[in-house]
């Protein structure tokens, strides 16, 4: 699934909450938007409960925490296998319900001519799908792969998600 080609102006909201690299933020403030800048091989995951108006965004860097278990403990958002469960857990604490969650993802790009040695972006994508499959979670929309940079934004009033690449914005959800 790829992002919609419709040109989109992006959210105009009172507060923009920035999600850094290896970071996650959640909020139930409908006047806010969550933004993460310049996803490369990292992946941005968004979850949104339209009834509770709870939204969260994770920007993880690597697939598996075993690469540095100590760092994963102090910063679970760095890895998919520790960050994704933490994102969902915190959303439930804010009143979100799993059955209502709209889940989207963007990023997972690759450097050129990687003949399978590293594939950091692909390994991130695969780990995410594995985690979702194990937990019966369906992706509502995603825009991943290629070698481009993506900025991901979500408005918390309606869960609308847009992606900006090279100054152009497209709507990812609702699609």
């Amino acid at each position: 699934m790829s992002s919609s080609p419709i040109t989109y102006r992006g959210p105009e909201v009172a507060n923009r909450i920035t999600v850094g690299v290896a970071d996650m933020q959640l909020s139930n403030d409908v006047d806010s938007a969550l933004v993460t800048y310049a996803l490369g091989s990292c992946i941005g995951v968004t979850i949104y409960d339209p009834i509770a108006k709870v939204g969260g965004m994770l920007h993880f860097m690597l697939p598996e925490s075993k690469v540095n278990a100590e760092k994963a403990q102090s910063n679970p958002a760095m890895f998919a296998d520790t960050g994704v469960p933490a994102l969902f857990k915190q959303a439930y604490e804010l009143g979100a319900k799993k059955s209502r969650l709209i889940v989207c993802a963007a990023g997972g790009a690759e450097v050129l001519a990687d003949d399978g040695h590293f594939k950091v972006g692909k390994r991130n994508r695969t780990m995410l799908r594995k985690l979702f499959w194990k937990n019966n979670i369906l992706l509502s929309a995603d825009d991943t792969g290629g070698s481009i940079s993506r900025t991901l934004m979500m408005t918390l009033s309606d869960g609308e998600i847009s992606i900006r690449t090279k100054g152009k914005e497209t709507k990812l959800w609702p699609n």
Partner: peptide
């Protein structure tokens, strides 16, 4: 330079369009 890209640092319009 490539490690930096994978760490999500200084990714601009050029994205990940570099080779190792």
């Amino acid at each position: 330079d490539i490690i930096c890209l994978w760490a999500g640092l200084a990714i601009g319009h050029d994205g990940l369009q570099y080779k190792l």
